[in-house]
Design a binder for these strands. Structure first.
Lengths: 109, 109
DNA sequence: TTAATACATCGTAATATTGCGATACAAAAT
DNA sequence: ATTTTGTATCGCAATATTACGATGTATTAA
């Protein structure tokens, strides 16, 4: 075992899980915050901002990119990363909808 | 290695990561959806609803409970799980704030 | 008391994640 | 052409996750 049984879940459930997983790490949250904060896309100053090795940051960036949350374009020698607006808004909408399905019912445990 | 360097991140970043991680699995998303759908708190019919073994469901429930997202109270022989409204709303607010920090700037890559 | 029911926990196998040094690679500067 | 600079990838060690059978535990039923 050790691998998720994706077959038994819906596409939506699996997809949402993948997106949440991509964000479910403090380093990746920090990276996203940095990318958002530096409204002009930043590159590898992330290595200096966060206290992680270059290889590690690069790996985290890859995971965010694979999930589609960020995108990177080569900018001369360096690479410019920024939020993928489409995916970001889609995820925001999906999460908002998910959280909204719950409303406090009186008689609960 | 293999363990996250939590020391170098803020409490908020670590906490948000923990919450997202708790939700970042299709089975746990399905569990939350079921708990929300059955507005009266449900118990271990989750085992029948999802196609996972009882031990596995119990383990996933524990993770959600540890994160504080759900709470369980003993109801005779069975256990009744439901959303923890405080934590749920808190997380909703935090995520909403996080997503709102991004707004499309014109000149991006 | 004993059996049944509903969960929780233990132990374990398979796999995934995290972090980093070392190294490869590609564009720009010399 | 060679060096420099910024990133990506490889390979590895340490640890975490996922899933489940087996077993423990606590409450109700008989």
């Amino acid at each position: 075992m050790g691998l998720t049984k994706t077959e038994i879940f819906t596409q939506e459930q699996n997809h949402l899980a993948v997106m949440l997983k991509a964000m479910a790490h403090p380093a990746r949250i920090a990276i996203l915050q940095q990318i958002i904060k530096a409204n002009t896309c930043i590159c590898g100053d992330l290595v200096e901002e966060l206290g992680l090795a270059q290889a590690t940051i690069s790996q985290h960036l890859k995971e965010l990119k694979t999930a589609g949350i960020i995108q990177g374009t080569i900018e001369g020698v360096s690479v410019c990363y920024c939020i993928n607006p489409t995916v970001w808004n889609e995820l925001q909408k999906q999460l908002s909808a998910f959280f909204s399905t719950y409303e406090l019912k009186t008689n609960c445990c």
